[in-house]
């Protein structure tokens, strides 16, 4: 059944901070259209892993092989800096937990979206603005607010703007770090709905790091559970949550408050 090639293959990725383990020996494959969730408590290494994959941190060992459009599978870690930057602007996207880390707060919403288009060569002002408007609408931000700065937006709107900015170039892989963290529950639901719709429409693959099991239950096809920098369990999302095998996963699942 598995004739396609994986979009992303992570092999034995490790990163230490001196004597302390960030993450160690993490390997997995992600196929086109698939969403993988990485869960674990604070300090479990999930954010370190994400940062190593996305090129924000240099891992000590391992490989991150991405199936590029032009040249097929390439190890991202051995790419030149300009090549990697190009990849980050075109086929990859990164949605930060704090929208302020992913947006430019000093320029308008429209410019935030348009900037990424210009980075891949768009030059026609009218077209850039039209595409920015279209994307603001897709993330449910009224087009008339295109000239406002993100500072004037609520937290939920800022997060939606960050998603628009990231997806406007039609990436194939999105990394998300606690995308619903710090938002009201009602705003979270709206964002979940939006992300699920976009992943479906665009056939995106995504890696979502979160500590929220309800979020991964609704968004992720597969789950990896991390503890102390190691992957302790992985599998189909509902299998890991309904029939957890590892002591830590059992503790995690049984600790969720029922509403």
């Amino acid at each position: 059944m598995s004739e396609q090639a994986p979009l992303l293959s992570v092999r034995e990725l490790s990163k230490s901070y001196g004597a302390r383990r960030g993450c160690a020996d993490v390997s997995f494959d992600l196929w086109p259209g698939e969403v993988i969730g990485i869960v674990g408590e604070s300090g479990s290494g999930k954010s370190t892993l994400l940062a190593c994959m996305a090129g924000y941190l240099a891992p000590d060992a391992g490989a991150v092989v991405f199936d590029t459009r032009a040249e097929g599978p390439r190890d991202v870690l051995s790419m030149s800096e300009p090549e990697r930057r190009m990849l980050a602007r075109t086929d990859w996207a990164f949605v930060h937990q704090n929208p302020r880390d992913g947006l430019r707060m000093g320029v308008s919403a429209g410019a935030n979206v348009g900037e990424r288009l210009m980075a891949v060569g768009a030059r026609h002002y009218g077209q850039i603005r039209a595409q920015a408007e279209d994307w603001l609408e897709r993330v449910e931000i009224a087009a008339e607010r295109i000239d406002e700065r993100p500072r004037q937006f609520s937290g939920g709107m800022q997060q939606r703007l960050q998603i628009a900015r990231n997806l406007v170039t039609g990436p194939r892989l999105v990394f998300m770090d606690e995308p619903t963290g710090g938002l009201d529950v009602s705003v979270q639901a709206r964002l979940l709905d939006l992300m699920r719709g976009l992943v479906r429409q665009m056939g995106l693959s995504a890696v979502i790091v979160t500590h929220d099991l309800a979020v991964v239950r609704l968004l992720a096809d597969r789950l990896m559970v991390m503890k102390d920098g190691l992957v302790v369990e992985e599998g189909l999302t509902d299998q890991v949550l309904d029939d957890p095998q590892h002591a830590y996963t059992q503790l995690l699942v049984s600790s969720v408050l029922q509403v």
């Binding site: 059944m1 096809d221 597969r222 189909l236 299998q239």
Partner: peptide
């Protein structure tokens, strides 16, 4: 015809 014991997640999804 699909074996579920030890199946890869993506095969179960399919």
């Amino acid at each position: 015809g699909v074996e579920l014991a030890g199946a890869a997640p993506r095969d179960v999804i399919a």
